[in-house]
Structure formats: C-alpha cells, structure tokens
Write a protein that binds this DNA or RNA. Structure first.
Lengths: 179, 179
DNA sequence: GGTTGCATGTAAATGGTTACATGATTGT
DNA sequence: ACAATCATGTAACCATTTACATGCAACC
C-alpha cells in the first residue's frame, strides 16, 4: 500500500491539504500503523491530481502560500475501494525497543528499567488519548481504535507486571565489554 | 538499526551462515519485530567481515556451495553493545490490515469477516508456537516473547469478541462504487 | 515433472526519507 | 532571540527489496 493509496484513504474521511495529511500520519488515527513524510505526500498528491483521482482547489491565505485543499474525486473513491479489496501485505513491525530488550542480560539494569518505564509512560499516554476520543467515528475506525487500545493496554500491563522479574533476573552484573 | 547490527545480534546468540540468519528473520523470534532479506544480509556480512566485527570459516559441503559460518568477533560484540545503548528509534508498524479495516463500512461484510477470521487464525497459530517454546532462553528473550504473547492474545481476543458487533454495524449494505 | 529447501551472491529498481529552500506568525 | 507552527515543494541520498544467476537433492 503506497503513499498514494494512503492519501486517498485520508481524503475519504475529509478534504485536506498536504500539510494536514501529514498531520494525520503524525497525530491522527493512522499514526499507529502507517507513516508518510512531506517528501512522499506532495509528489503523491500531484500524481493523484494528474490522474484525476483527486481534485484541488487553492485557498488564498494572507502572508502564507496558498493552501491547496484536495478532495476525493469519484475515480479516486473507486481506486481506494479497489485497493481495499486486495489482500493486505503481512504486517511489518520494526521495533528497536524489542530488539534491544532481547539482549537485556548484556545491559545495565538501570538502562533496562529506564527503557521499560519510558515505554509504559508512552503507552499510558496513548491510551488516555485514545480512550478519551469520544467522536462518532465510522464503525471501521472505532473497531480499529478498539484493537489499538486492547493491544497497548496488554503491552503496558505486561511491562508493568514483569519489569521487576526481568530486572531481578539480569541482576546487577555490569555491562560486559569484552577486551 | 541497520541490517549489520541486526546480524550482530543474531550472531551473538549462535554462530550462523547468511542463510541461517535469514531464517532467524523469517521463523525465529526476531520475525515479529524486524526483517531482512538475502539482498541485504549477504552484503552486510561481507562488510562486517571486512571491518573485523565477525569471523568467517568456510564449511565444505558436497554438491553445494561452501557454507560460510560467521561468528561474532570481540570487536563485533562491542559494536553490538554500543548499538544496544543508543536510544531506540520509535517503533514503526505498517499494517495494511488495520488500514483496510478502518474503512470497513465501505466493504462487503463477507470480506471483512474473512479478513478478521484469517487474522485470528494467524494470531492463534503464532500463540501456540510461542507458548510451546519451552527453551531456556536468556532473560531478555523470554521477556520479549512474553510481550509478544500478551499482545497477540489481546489482539486475537478483541477481534473475536468484537467481530460480530462490527459486522452488525456495517449491515449488509453492498459495496458502494460511485459512478 | 514441479516445487521446496539448501546455499551464495549481484544488480537494478523501488520507494521512500532527509535535508534544503522560502518565509510569515506566534509563542517563550 | 529562538523555536515552533503553518505551508509547499524539490533533489539528493539511502537502505532495502526484487529479480536474476547458478545448481543439486529430496519430496510429492
């Protein structure tokens, strides 16, 4: 699923500028399972526009570049639907956090503790935000948010309830630098 | 965290060939949070070898290319430790599954149901494998496996207990192709 | 007879990110 | 003064994947 399709998805929810689409990937509901930067969003939007999948209207603003508001064209809606009907590629998770923790026994316990605590705090903050979200989203978005909440809560709970066990297991042995 | 560091991590657990490292990312414990293909592993191994971070010994085999067994050199161990002490980049999840589900209301319920059922089956299979893993792993690996089990279980349970609710919400409205 | 597994490697193509360029406004 | 927010866009760079090249053995 490329950035073009992702943009169509965002636009299906509401008209938006490139800048606003970027925010959807930074702060919006998509942030948890997809990401895109300006360098990919702006060219994608231009391509979509050239293909007639989206429409643009320029919104003049004082002392700022015109804001280009994109909206989904009927052809774009069909393209999105077609993409939604393809088999999803397997999920890809890249977590340096889990990779590092896999080698906890080589690390100073203080570092492991700090890593885990920071992660718990992050999950709890996300949970507060996601649970406080009382907007009447469409059914799909509500369902996906529910998965996110369930998963983040499970992860935070596990970290909290097993942290001390891990810390005890790796003891207070120092960082073992060979040589 | 690049493929070179990932390879050092795999080699810290046991000596391995490029082919075996690939398997660690396909079937091993790392598969859930990092991935790498031959096209990146083999060059990485050559670079690590040139830098003196790993050592190679060729294992002759009949009717097959020599198997090159790599092992972590002291310099490599230090490089790994240094990498483990850096701040982990934020987790990056790419899930077409969740993206597609976000738009469940546009899709035929049968498709949504099939998508969810397949995913539940996948989680349950992974859980069986992970729970059946009774090896005496180091503390870090055990802890990380515990997180994986907790998270997959939470996801599978949520999907199972909210599937019918979602299906009911999207009704039996047909695929809405505009125009 | 075709696929899968073993085993290594390269080159081209991909699909992005990062950094740069520009610039006013608002907050600290 | 400095950073952040708003706003768009390009180009260089990057890491990685995909496809190719090679070839035998075992299984179905």
């Amino acid at each position: 699923m490329d950035v073009k399709t992702l943009c169509l998805g965002v636009l299906s929810r509401a008209d938006a500028s490139g800048y606003e689409i970027k925010k959807a990937f930074e702060e919006g509901p998509f942030r948890h399972f997809h990401q895109a930067s300006f360098g990919s969003i702006y060219p994608a939007l231009n391509a979509l526009s050239a293909e007639g999948l989206v429409e643009v209207r320029a919104l003049a603003q004082d002392k700022r570049p015109d804001k280009k508001i994109y909206s989904l064209a009927p052809k774009g809606r069909n393209a999105l639907l077609a993409a939604l009907m393809t088999n999803p590629a397997p999920d890809a998770v890249r977590s340096d956090f889990l990779f590092i923790l896999s080698f906890a026994q080589y690390l100073p316990p203080a570092r492991v503790e700090q890593l885990i605590n920071a992660r718990i705090a992050w999950y709890r903050e996300m949970l507060t935000r996601m649970e406080g979200c009382t907007s009447e989203d469409p059914a799909g978005a509500r369902f996906v948010r529910g998965i996110g909440i369930a998963v983040y809560r499970a992860a935070a709970d596990y970290l909290e309830s097993h942290r001390d066990e891990l810390l005890a297991a790796i003891g207070d042995g120092d960082l073992q630098v060979a040589e």
